[in-house]
Design a protein around this nucleic acid. Structure first.
Lengths: 206, 206
DNA sequence: TTTAACTGTCGCTGGGCGGTGACATAAACT
DNA sequence: AGTTTATGTCACCGCCCAGCGACAGTTAAA
C-alpha cells in the first residue's frame, strides 16, 4: 500500500460516501467502512478519531446539500425574488429533484429519523437555515395574504416529498403513488404546483 | 418459571411491543427480545419459529393501526360519506393525531424506511388498503372536479404528517414548525384544512 | 405407576462488532 | 550513513449476536 496520508484519508471519505449510498446508515460501522475503503480500520481511528468524526468530515467536505442555485434555479437572486408564488413552487419541486438524485443525502435524512449525531444535527441545522432564508426571500408574510401560514405549507410539502423519497428505497408505492416511475413523481410535481397556487389564490381573496 | 405456553407466548408478544416502543427496530433481535421478555430465546424459536414470525404475529394480534372509525370519526359510514371535503380533512388530521399517540406504530413506520420485513410490509399493505378505501369513499374522482389528483394530495399530505411525526423524536423543529408544542401541530392542522379546501375549490372552478 | 410429551434452562459454536497494542517498513531529517 | 518519525499491517480482546443440542422439571396420558 502506498504511504500517503492525505490520499488514504480521501479514500476513507470516498468509501464512506459509497457505503452510505449503498446500504445506508444501517451497517455503517468501522469494520464495514474499513473493508469498503480497503484500508485497515486503525487508520480510520488515527485520521479521524472516531466514526462520528468521519461523518462530520463528510458533512463539511462533500456536497451533501443542494446549493441555493440548485433550488431557485439559475439566474435567480434569492434576495430579490420576482414572483414569489413561482419561486416557491420551483424551490419545492427542485428540492424533490435534488434529493432524489443525492443518495448520500437521502441516507443522512433517513439517519436523522433514528438518532442524533454530528452529521444529522448539521443536516437539520442546514435545513432550518435554508427554510428561513426561503421564507425571507418570498416575503409574502404580510399584505396581500391575510391569514396565511406559508411556513407551515412549505414544511408540510417538503416533509411529504422527503418522506416519499425515503420510502422509495423499501416501498413500491405510497398511497397509490408509484415511487419507481417518472409518472409517479410527475404526479407529485404537478400536485405541488396546483396545491400551492390554489392555497395562495384562496388566501389572497379572503 | 410457570409452565404455561400461551402465557409465555403472550409475554413474548408484549415484550416485543415494549421493545419496539423503547428502541425501535434498531436493536430488535432474538437476544434483546428474550431479555426483555425474561424468557429463554429458544422458546421464541419454539413458539414462533423465527423473528419474522414474531413480527407477523405483532401485526396480526396487536392494534398497531388506527381503525376506520378512528380515522373517519364516530358515526360516519365510510361507504357513504356525506361531505367528501370535510371527510378528507378529518381523515388526514385524525391520521396525524392517531399516529402521534401510537409510539409502536411510529417505530414501525420508521422501520419501513430502513428495511423490509414481515411487519413493515404489512404496514405498507395496510396503508395502501386504507388509502384506496378512502379514495373510494370520497368519490370525487369525476364530475365536479375536472383535472384533479386527490390521490396525490392525500399521499403528499399524509407523507408530510408522517415524516414530521417521525422527525419529532430527534429534531426540535422542522422548517420552523415546533414539533414539541401543541401550537406547532395546530399550525399543521389548520394548514391541512386550508390547503385541502383551497385545492378542491380551485379545481371545482376550472 | 410407569411412560411419554411438553415446557423451560443451560451452555456451546461460529461469527461480526468496536477498539487497542505491538510490530514492520517506508520516508524524512541530521 | 544512522536515527527518528510517520504510515500501514497484524493479532488480539471482550462483547453481543443468531442458532443449536443436550438436559431437567412438570404434566398428563397409558
Amino acid at each position: 500500500m502506498k504511504r500517503d496520508k492525505v490520499e488514504t484519508r480521501e479514500r476513507i471519505l470516498k468509501a464512506a460516501e459509497r457505503l452510505l449510498t449503498k446500504s445506508g446508515g444501517r451497517d455503517f460501522g468501522i469494520n464495514s467502512l474499513a473493508r469498503e475503503a480497503g484500508v485497515d480500520k486503525v487508520l480510520i481511528y488515527r485520521y479521524f478519531g472516531s466514526l462520528s468524526e468521519v461523518l462530520r468530515a463528510i458533512g463539511e467536505e462533500t456536497s451533501l446539500w443542494p446549493s441555493t442555485v440548485d433550488l431557485f434555479g439559475p439566474g435567480v437572486n434569492p434576495r430579490r425574488v420576482a414572483d414569489p408564488e413561482d419561486a416557491l413552487i420551483r424551490v419545492l419541486t427542485n428540492s424533490l429533484k435534488e434529493l432524489r438524485r443525492r443518495k448520500p443525502t437521502q441516507e443522512v435524512a433517513r439517519w436523522e429519523l433514528f438518532e442524533r449525531n454530528e452529521l444529522t444535527e448539521k443536516f437539520a441545522a442546514v435545513r432550518e437555515k435554508r427554510g428561513s432564508e426561503l421564507l425571507a426571500a418570498l416575503s409574502i408574510d404580510s399584505a396581500a395574504y391575510p391569514e396565511i401560514d406559508v411556513g407551515a405549507v412549505i414544511a408540510l410539502v417538503h416533509a411529504g416529498l422527503t418522506h416519499m423519497v425515503l420510502c422509495s428505497r423499501t416501498a413500491d408505492k405510497y398511497l397509490g403513488i408509484d415511487l419507481h416511475s417518472n409518472f409517479g413523481w410527475g404526479r407529485l410535481e404537478k400536485t405541488i404546483d396546483c396545491l400551492i397556487r390554489a392555497y395562495l389564490a384562496g388566501q389572497r381573496k379572503g
